[in-house]
Design a binder for these strands. Structure first.
Lengths: 334, 334
DNA sequence: CTGAAAGCGCTAACAC
DNA sequence: GTGTTAGCGCTTTCAG
C-alpha cells in the first residue's frame, strides 16, 4: 500500500487538511508546522495521488490533444508548441492520433472527456455537423489549432490560408509567370484544398490571367505525390513554368520530380511550397515557401485554452497569426 | 452537475453495482436488465468518469511517455508506434518532452507517477545512477525505447547499434574506401556517440585499416552540423572518400555540404546515414542508410509494457530488433 | 444474477 | 492557523 496524506498527517501530528495545505502551497500554514509536514513527507516518501485530487477537486490539470498524425513533420512541430505551453502552465497532455478519421475523432473526444481533461486542443480536417454537435456538448473548452471552422462557432488559431496562397501565387505572377501549376490537396480539405485553391484562383483572376483547370493537380501531401505530379506537369503540351505546392513535402517531390526528368529548378520550373517546415532548407535548391508558424499556432492555441480553463475574459476567440513568404533558391530572383 | 452512475441506477431501477457491471461488460447481468440499463444510459447521456474509476480500481489505463523531442522526425515516428499499440490495448498516452534534460526527466517521472499511470515508456540518453534509482522506485513497470541501459537492469527495446555501425563502415571498406570519415554525436551519448563510434572503430580495426582520429568529427544531429562537418572534411589535406553519419539528417547536411562546395556524391564522397527516416529518399542522390525500425521499436516497447502491466510472463526483457542497410544512390555500386 | 456498503485518497467548506 | 467532515463517482467484496 502506498503512503497517503493520512499517513503523513499522522506522522507529522497534524490533520489531513494541513498536509493538503502544504502540499498545495496554501500560505495559511505556520512555518514550523509546514516544516514538520515537509519532513514527514520526505521521510515517508509521500507522493500525492493526482487521481484522487482530480476526483475531489474536479480538475485534472490534463488536457487532451487530438492530432491527425504525430509522425508528420508538420503536426509534430505544432504538438511541441502545445506541449511547451502546457508544461509552462502545469498541464500534462494526453495525445491521440486521429488519422483525420471522423469516427476516431468523435470517439477520442468522448474518451478524453471521460478522462476528465480540463480542455482539448483539436487538430483535424473538416468540422462536420457531428463534430460541431460534439464540441458543443463538451463540458470543457475546446480550441481548434490549424483547423478551420467555417461558422466560427469555436475558438481557433490559424493563419489566413487563402491570403497566404494568394500571396504566393501573386509573387509568381509578378515574376513573370503566366502559366502556374498548383499541386493541391483534395478540395474537400478545407485548408489544404479549398482555401489554398481559392487563394490560387483569386491571384490568377486579380491579375487577369486565364484560369486553366488542367493546371490543378491533386496530391495527398506526400513527397511521392509531388514526384507523381511532375509526370503530369512535364508531359503537358503547354507546360506551366511555375508550381505552387500546398505543402513543403510535396514541393520537395516536385523539385526532385523535375530534376529527375532533366529539368532545372528554378529555370524550367520555379517552385514554391507551403509551411516552411525544416524540409525547406534540406533540399537543393532550397525551397521558397509560405511561412506558417506551426510551433506558434500550437503555443497560442494552448495559451488560449488556458485562458478558457481559467475562465478569463477572452476578446478574440478566433486568432489569426501572420504569414509571410520566405524567398530561397527555388524561385528565380528577377 | 454531471450525471453519475447513481442517476443511471435510479433511472433503470437497479443498483449502482449493476450499472457498473454493464458499463464494464461484466457478463453476469441478465439481458433484460442490461437492456434497461443501457437505455437509461442512453437517455441520460451518461458518460463514465474515468478519474473516479481510476481511484476505485487503481488502474488508469493511461501510460506515460517520456520523449526527448516530439518534433524530431526520429522520435515522432517512435511515438506513433507507441501510440498505435497503446490504442490497440485501450490505453491513452500522456506525452512529455524532456529535451534529454536530466532534471526534467526525473521530474517528469514523478509527475507521471503522481498521475497514477499504469506504466511508462522512456526514451532518453544516458541512464545515470539517479535515473536507475528512480526507475527502481517506480511502482509501475518502465520500458526503455531506443535507449541503452548498460547494466541491462531494465526492460528495453533497441537494435544493435554497434553492430549496425560496424556493418555500415564495413560496407564502405569493402567498396574500396580506406579513409572513412565519421560524423558522430557527442561521445557521451551512449547510442549516437559511443556505440556507433565503437562500431566504426571495430570495422576499421577488423579490416586492418589505420585509425585516424582526425577523421572523427562531432555533430549535434542537425542538418546544419552536417553542412559544417563538410567544411572540415573538404579542407583536410588527406580527405576521406566516404562519410558515415550517425543520423540521416546529418547525412543530408553532409551531402549538401559536399555539393555546395562542388564535390560529387557519390564520387568524391560516398555517404551513408543512419535511421532510414523519410528524409533518406527526399534527397538527391537518395541516401544509403542503416535501417532502424523506429515505428517498430515504439510498437514493441508498448507491447512489452502491456505485458508487464498485465503481469504476464516475459522471457526477454531486453529485445533487440534486426537492422539492415538500405542501399541507395549516395554510395557507389561497385 | 443483483444489491448493500465500504472504501479509493484527496479537497473544500465550515467550524473553532 | 488548524481540524472535522462530507463528499467526488466509481469498483469491489460480500451476501443473498
Amino acid at each position: 500500500m502506498n503512503t497517503t496524506i493520512y499517513d503523513v498527517a499522522r506522522e507529522a501530528g497534524v490533520s489531513m487538511a494541513t498536509v493538503s495545505r502544504v502540499v498545495n502551497g496554501n500560505p495559511n500554514v505556520k512555518p514550523t508546522t509546514r516544516k514538520k509536514v515537509l519532513e514527514a513527507i520526505e521521510q515517508l516518501g509521500y507522493r500525492p495521488n493526482a487521481v484522487a485530487r482530480g476526483l475531489a477537486s474536479k480538475r485534472t490539470t490534463t488536457v487532451g490533444v487530438i492530432i491527425p498524425d504525430i509522425s508528420s513533420i508538420f503536426f509534430s512541430e505544432l504538438a511541441r508548441g502545445i506541449e511547451d505551453i502546457a508544461t509552462m502552465y502545469k498541464y500534462n497532455i494526453i495525445l491521440c492520433n486521429s488519422d483525420q478519421n471522423k469516427e476516431k475523432e468523435i470517439h477520442l473526444i468522448n474518451t478524453l472527456l471521460e478522462k476528465q481533461v480540463d480542455g482539448i486542443v483539436y487538430m483535424g480536417g473538416e468540422i462536420t455537423e457531428e463534430h460541431a454537435a460534439q464540441f458543443k456538448r463538451s463540458p470543457v473548452p475546446i480550441v481548434l489549432a490549424a483547423t478551420l471552422d467555417q461558422e466560427k462557432d469555436f475558438p481557433s488559431v490559424n493563419i489566413d490560408y487563402k491570403q497566404a496562397a494568394e500571396d504566393a501565387v501573386t509573387t509568381l505572377i509578378e515574376k513573370g509567370h503566366t502559366r502556374i501549376g498548383m499541386l493541391s490537396g483534395s478540395l474537400d480539405d478545407p485548408i489544404n484544398g479549398f482555401q489554398k485553391f481559392a487563394g490560387y484562383r483569386s491571384a490568377i483572376e486579380k491579375k487577369n490571367l486565364e484560369f486553366d483547370e488542367n493546371l490543378i493537380v491533386l496530391g495527398d501531401y506526400t513527397y511521392d505525390s509531388g514526384i507523381e505530379a511532375m509526370d503530369t506537369f512535364t508531359t503537358m503540351q503547354d507546360k506551366p513554368t511555375a508550381i505552387f505546392a500546398s505543402s513543403d513535402e510535396m514541393a520537395l517531390g516536385v523539385i526532385h520530380g523535375a530534376q529527375d526528368k532533366g529539368f532545372n529548378v528554378p529555370g524550367d520550373f520555379d517552385v514554391i511550397g507551403f509551411d516552411n517546415t525544416r524540409l525547406s532548407v534540406m533540399v537543393r535548391p532550397t525551397l521558397t515557401t509560405v511561412v506558417q508558424p506551426m510551433y506558434d499556432i500550437g503555443a497560442v492555441s494552448m495559451r488560449l485554452l488556458t485562458k478558457f480553463m481559467n475562465k478569463e475574459e477572452v476578446t478574440d476567440h478566433t486568432v489569426q497569426l501572420p504569414h509571410r513568404i520566405e524567398f530561397r533558391q527555388s524561385t528565380k530572383n528577377d
